[in-house]
């Protein structure tokens, strides 16, 4: 078997072999000791590089744009270009602002774009409270129409409590 030649300098024998499996793709590099040292252990494939390549350079409609015309998150201030370069987000709001760029990325990485796991209790209870609030408001309308003012007062009190709780959760 003939000795393997370094993939970087193409001169010396490759003695350092790196194999990595990422996103289902096996990647190998073969380097001589000198080149491996020069790379300072950084010759591995970075996950950021891979992800950055998966993000398309598209504009997100509806987002505030910078002078250059690229969208920027009004809350954390990161631009689409920064998101694309680092493949990292700056705040929860970015998931909305950069949605059109994120969806194809999520599809490629996870093969899905819809969460199917755990839901925080706070979210569950908020949804429950909002549903109850909507129901109470409909009920209020009907009892007011039927002039049952005692019942309407009770419902109004309950609405006030629920609204108070929901507002508290938002602060």
């Amino acid at each position: 078997m003939s000795p393997m030649i370094c993939g970087k300098c193409s001169k010396n024998h490759a003695t350092v072999h790196v194999t990595e499996v990422k996103n289902g793709v096996k990647m190998e590099s073969h380097l001589c000791e000198e080149c491996a040292r020069a790379a300072g252990g950084k010759f591995t494939f970075s996950i950021t590089d891979i992800l950055a390549n998966l993000i398309e350079p598209v504009k997100t409609p509806g987002a505030k744009t910078t002078e250059a015309g690229a969208p920027r998150c009004p809350e954390c201030g990161i631009s689409y270009a920064e998101f694309k370069a680092k493949a990292r987000l700056g705040c929860a709001n970015d998931y909305e602002v950069f949605k059109s760029g994120l969806l194809p990325l999520l599809e490629k990485v996870h093969g899905a774009v819809q969460h199917a796991g755990k839901t925080p209790h706070t979210v569950e209870s908020v949804v429950r409270k909002e549903t109850e609030l909507a129901r109470l408001k409909r009920e209020l309308e009907s009892v007011v129409k039927s002039e049952d003012f005692e019942k309407a007062a009770q419902i109004r009190d309950r609405i006030r409590i629920l609204e108070g709780e929901l507002n508290k959760g938002k602060s």
Partner: peptide
Amino acid sequence: IDTDLEQHLTYAYHPRFGYLTCCPTNVGT
């Protein structure tokens, strides 16, 4: 532990994307 902790703080959560993370490779669960 996650459920206990969640009684005391509000996580960044999105009905479509689940638990929101800094890197999109961790989002969802």
